[in-house]
Design a protein around this nucleic acid. Structure first.
Lengths: 344, 344
DNA sequence: TATATTTGCTTAAACGTTTAAGCAAATATA
DNA sequence: TATATTTGCTTAAACGTTTAAGCAAATATA
């Protein structure tokens, strides 16, 4: 019952007594094939339940119509949403995506790149693992002439297209918001300085303090891996200061959640004693008590644009020189209970 | 600089003045090739940075070494973890996976199946969307002779391999736990009856009540789509009853979270007034206040086993008749504050 | 009516790999 | 020493598609 011999273009050709080449052209609406033949071919194709063999056409055409996507993790609202929108845009143009996750590991990321190159993807859309510093593997993609588009976590010196939000400005918006709430000692639990986006958030924080004539206090600027656990640890550290902060801005929502837990365990009122702001607008920020103010990163827009940029390379063909083309979106601050002093 | 002509087996053959066939065999450690030739071939392959063309070998061998994975969503700890472990097992055997998400939509799920078949996957590992009732698309996979393995959300009458937890027994464990805490009026916010796993949880709930000589109260058994929103709605409904429940068992963590919010808004003490149990052990269950008791579904085990089952089909070759082979794992109850009456 | 162009196909080769069949040289066996 | 077997390769064809080149018939143009 199962495993009938697979139907090929030749089977259609045999039925209609024409050549396989004519069938191929008819299926692709070549202008040199008559309407009658096209209709007949399509009819027979449908009757035989013909399914084109992607592998064969990919081999012949030298492109697979597959795009590789590398994310640090799929288990995040941001990345999951970006992926969904990349897929939406690419599927319409006949491309399919292969998703791989690095789990924030540099080694796994390199493996993923090898896997994708091996699978002959036509392009790679990636966001880097926290660990990644050495970019030689990404250079490998470039040297093969495969379009590479980075989003969210990317690096300047790779000289490839990048799409993300304006991290620097986001910090300004956050600091401004906290100052409006009356906060004066604003701490920043920041990400790794070597990662561009986190560095931009730190720079934004520093410059925004200056703008509002607030002193920069080194005790209040802490580097973290932004996990929940580390958020807890860094919050405890802040509470041990002689002069505690009156606001904490964490560069990631999980770290903010850790801070929130520690504050509650110490019966510190949020936001009145210490206001709290996260980053990323993960769904749980709206679910915990109190709800956490955060930055929305426009995942859908990032996904769509990353896919669109790839498509531009795809139509131009493989031999286009890549240039650094940055697309920076404005982020939006979602104010919730954890920083809304007036209403609480 | 980029786009050097790609290196093929022929290039290696030319360097060594042997035939491409010999190169192919040497690379695959064929016993009929001398050690010297093998070493020479591998050396040149490395020097030229040779990368085998998966498409060509897939076409020739009639298999792609790709496995399709369909999940309702990647943005869930359970599915993300299952995927990760499927990948881990399959990568070791030279397979790669293509992840697609149905977003709980039947139409999207059908599209995904078409995509995967088009991409010539060697097998499909899937968990069904909530919407899915019509199984004809899955029959399509079977009729092509492609191994199909379902996990978590599967259906009996498809007659394919299935791996999941013992939902029926999980309900028993939950009810038993709540009875031990002294609860007498246990409500169940269940999933769709037409979905096997949710139906099993409902049956388990009903039978467990009977076992503990508790009456089955129809008001306390509610069908839900298990989203956070619907969890809120159904909890409100329960609070309007003349005799409120003293425990709520939701068949999903998001629904449990919705219930938790409503309970807190109404200043009802959890667990003393009403105890709460969820299902799935999503990370947030350990993060909210109070933490939510839930069922751990052994995602890593499910992922590993699903991949292992596929590999068994893969080595046997395509022409094996599939049989219904169920693997049912025992679930584990993770007791947290929301149902821990003694300690609260 | 004679030549040029267009239409609608066919032929043949190619993408890069694998593998069945075959064959000469080397080695083993009688 | 004569035959059988093994070793180590080569040759040729194939996977299913696409596409350049070509060609006959139909149609257009002079």
């Amino acid at each position: 019952m199962t495993n009938k011999k697979r139907i090929t273009i030749k089977d259609i050709a045999n039925v209609l007594k024409i050549s396989p080449a004519a069938v191929s052209k008819a299926l692709h609406d070549d202008s040199r094939i008559s309407k009658e033949t096209k209709l007949a071919v399509k009819k027979v194709a449908k009757e035989l339940n013909y399914q084109p063999n992607l592998l064969a056409s990919a081999l012949r055409k030298g492109k697979s119509n597959l795009v590789g996507v590398i994310v640090p993790k799929t288990n995040s609202n941001f990345f999951s949403s970006v992926i969904q929108h990349i897929e939406e845009v690419l599927n319409k143009e006949g491309y399919h995506i292969i998703i791989t996750q690095s789990n924030e590991s540099y080694k796994k990321e390199c493996d993923n790149i090898d896997t994708l190159l091996f699978t002959q993807v036509d392009g790679i859309i990636a966001s880097m693992a926290n660990e990644t510093i050495d970019l030689s593997y990404y250079e490998k993609i470039k040297s093969k002439g495969i379009p590479l588009i980075l989003f969210d976590r990317g690096e300047n010196n790779l000289n490839v297209d990048y799409i993300g939000i304006d991290d620097y400005r986001s910090s300004h918006i956050i600091v401004e918001h906290l100052v409006e709430q009356g906060c004066q000692r604003i701490a920043h639990i920041g990400g790794y300085k070597h990662t561009r986006i986190f560095n931009n958030r730190i720079r934004g924080y520093v410059d925004a303090l200056k703008k509002h004539k607030l002193p920069l206090n080194k005790e209040l600027l802490i580097e973290s891996n932004l996990t929940l656990q580390d958020g807890r640890k860094k919050m405890k550290q802040l509470l041990e200061l002689k002069k505690r902060p009156d606001a904490v801005y964490a560069a990631g929502d999980y770290a903010a959640l850790g801070a929130l837990q520690v504050l509650q365990e110490n019966h510190i009122n949020i936001p009145n004693d210490i206001a709290l702001v996260g980053f990323g607008n993960e769904p749980f920020t709206a679910l915990v008590t109190p709800t956490i103010t955060s930055i929305e990163q426009h995942s859908s827009e990032i996904g769509k644009q990353a896919a669109t940029i790839f498509l531009e390379y795809a139509v131009k063909g493989n031999f286009v020189k890549q240039t650094l083309n940055k697309t920076i979106l404005d982020a939006a601050l979602i104010v919730r209970d954890s920083s809304n002093i007036k209403n609480s």
